[in-house]
Amino acid sequence: MGPITDHASKDSDAQSILCKIVNQIALITLNRPSRLNALTPEMREAYLETLDRADRDADVRAIVVTGAGRAFCAGADLTALEGLDAAKMRSRMQDQKVPFDRALRLGKPLIAAVNGAVAGIGMAHVLMADIRFAAPEARFTTAFARLGLTAEGGTAWLLTRLVGTARAMDMLCSSRMVGAEEAERIGLVQWIVPADELLDRALAYAVVLAGNSAYSLARMREQVYSAWEQDWPSAYEHSQQFVYESLDRPEFTELAARRKAERESRAADASTASA
């Protein structure tokens, strides 16, 4: 597959989804800063297709997503909700080429660099990342209750598993803004990073992951998300089957040989130094 190129939605502002490859990392940028990266249907579809292409690209080992400007994603573009009813929404979802939950089905790690405000359906996309870095300016709100909607895009399911039932209910029912420090404290994000370092730190972390076995990363991601709905015996048996499979793969043999060579080299250096 060739290199991933920028995707453009029908938004007139600019190309609303950008993607470039940096050190085997696909950097995806929601690029509609004049509207706080609010998602139009075309923009959402372009984002999902970009995720899909990055996942299928053998040259990509991890994916980072961020927002342009001062927001990550302000949710759905409210103009796209005007005149929308259940029938139109069902039709729109059925016509999508890539399923909305594609992020949960990736074979590669997905890292969100949350540079600013996140609301509504933007929350669902952040929650589907494996790792979340946030700038101090980041703010998180589900927003659905203020719009007369329910938790869209699996937000309730995802949020509950990250922060627990009580905190998820608070965030969903109040639609209050949660700041970066609180988000870190309750486990919604893993790290707060100064805004001018945010993207570099997220990319550097992604490069570390890219240096690990792609097979291991894909299988562990599958283990984590499938285990959410498994009992302990099933999860344990699932994990053991993957272990047996991994022992027969070339990555294990190659990495074991590399570690042995490194140990022997260190031992030889130590012996020379003591002589």
Rank of each mutant, 00 (worst) to 15 (best):
Q190F: 00
G122S: 04
S265I: 02
I111H: 02
A257D: 11
H7W: 13
A151D: 15
A268T: 06
F144I: 08
E251F: 01
I28N: 07
R176D: 13
T272K: 10
Q240G: 02
S174F: 06
L39E: 12
R258S: 09
N31I: 02
P41A: 04
T165M: 09
D11A: 09
S213K: 01
D77A: 09
A257K: 07
E251L: 00
D13Y: 15
A275S: 13
A227T: 10
V65Y: 00
M123C: 14
E262K: 00
V98M: 03
R56P: 05
L27S: 03
A71M: 05
T253A: 13
V22Q: 13
I186K: 03
I4C: 06
R35P: 00
K88P: 07
Y225T: 14
N115F: 01
E237N: 14
M177L: 11
L39Y: 05
G153T: 03
T141V: 08
A180H: 04
N23T: 12
D130P: 05
I192G: 03
S174R: 15
A46N: 13
S12V: 13
D101K: 02
D200M: 07
W191S: 10
Q230L: 15
L172F: 07
G116R: 01
Y47D: 09
D55T: 05
L51S: 05
H238C: 01
L27N: 04
A257I: 00
F140S: 10
D13A: 13
D57W: 01
S246G: 05
N31P: 06
L78I: 13
V207N: 04
V224I: 14
A267T: 08
Q24T: 08
A143Q: 12
M220A: 05
I121S: 07
W232L: 15
P194G: 05
Q94L: 14
D85H: 10
I21Y: 00
Q230V: 00
V189M: 05
L18K: 15
L27H: 14
M1L: 11
T5A: 11
D57Y: 01
A129G: 05
L217F: 01
L149F: 13
H7C: 11
I131A: 00
A26S: 12
